[in-house]
């Protein structure tokens, strides 16, 4: 018997030749590594106030110190360990909630669909950041509460996407064939539908990681996320407001947010282009923020 290679119908990553996608993936991965290694590679304790205050970058402190004598560089890399995992958690939870509700709406239709879709309309009608602010204010300021608040506003886009995809596949011949063979709705969704809709959902999720980081840092910046001693990029930028002359306080955390968000967006864009060349944006990158 010939030992032929079995080609699985994979997501073709041809467009990964797109340089922006590779650059994005490298930067995003680097930040994730930094996030994990933060306690090991930080030269100082990010919370210790034992250095000279407002010291300019250079010498012992690469990125200077803040108004309380804390090392900005150490705070920056431990901030990666705070924001990035929470942003990933937020996206994973939104995908879970959104895809489950969207699948149910799309598969069962009728009043189930109506109910779920009207709820998503309701949530989507609110301005995202303002609704998240209200929820974070109501729950109290903490990073986890900021995640919950962001979760409430971020799942509906997944629900809508999934619902549309499931609706399109529900009456396809192979799903109907499965139903005729006695598949339960859940088996149909899991075996026949899920493997065929996972690609677009992953693209949306990768594009959303940047948005999630921006939203969480934004809430912290407004004082609705991380509580004071925590090294979080948004609250670091917020602390810098009082010390405008010390540019390093705001610029470095700002740059950290910028690079992470742009990197994840490049990855998402490259994934989208790889999956669907028709929606390719100019030179691989696109305005998604």
């Amino acid at each position: 018997m010939m030992n032929t290679r079995i080609k699985r119908p994979r997501i073709h990553l041809g467009a990964w030749g797109a340089p922006l996608g590779i650059i994005g993936a490298v930067i995003a991965l680097a930040w994730i590594v930094v996030a994990f290694l933060a306690p090991v590679i930080a030269p100082h304790d990010p919370l210790a106030q034992d250095l000279p205050r407002l010291q300019a970058p250079g010498g012992d402190t690469i990125l200077g110190t803040d108004s309380l004598g804390r090392d900005v560089f150490s705070r920056l890399i431990s901030g990666a360990g705070v924001t990035i995992p929470l942003a990933l958690l937020l996206v994973v939870l939104s995908v879970l909630i959104g895809t489950i509700l969207g699948s149910i709406a799309g598969f069962f239709g009728r009043w189930v669909d109506e109910t779920i879709m009207r709820i998503t309309d309701l949530v989507m009608a609110f301005p995202t950041v303002i609704l998240a602010m209200v929820i974070a204010a109501a729950l109290g300021a903490s990073l986890l509460n900021a995640v919950y608040a962001a979760l409430i506003v971020s799942w509906p886009s997944y629900a809508r996407l999934t619902r549309g995809l499931v609706l399109g596949l529900r009456s396809s011949n192979y799903v109907v064939s499965g139903r005729l063979l006695g598949f339960s709705p859940w088996r149909s969704l899991w075996r026949d539908i899920a493997p065929n809709i996972i690609g677009p959902i992953l693209v949306l999720a990768s594009l959303d990681i940047g948005t999630a980081i921006l939203l969480l840092s934004g809430l912290s910046f407004l004082g609705l996320g991380a509580k004071p001693p925590t090294a979080e990029w948004g609250s670091m930028v917020s602390d810098a407001i009082g010390n405008f002359d010390q540019w390093w306080l705001g610029v470095f955390p700002g740059l950290a947010i910028l690079t992470v968000v742009v990197a994840f967006n490049f990855v998402g864009d490259a994934l989208r282009d790889a999956l669907d060349p028709k929606s390719a944006t100019l030179r691989g990158g696109g305005p998604t923020l």
Binding site: S172, N173, V176, G182, N196
Partner: peptide
């Protein structure tokens, strides 16, 4: 009712592409 089965017109859509 599973004693009645069907074969469809379009062979490209009658099989799950990812299984």
């Amino acid at each position: 009712s599973t004693g009645i089965q069907m074969v469809f017109q379009d062979p490209n859509s009658s099989l799950n592409p990812r299984r």
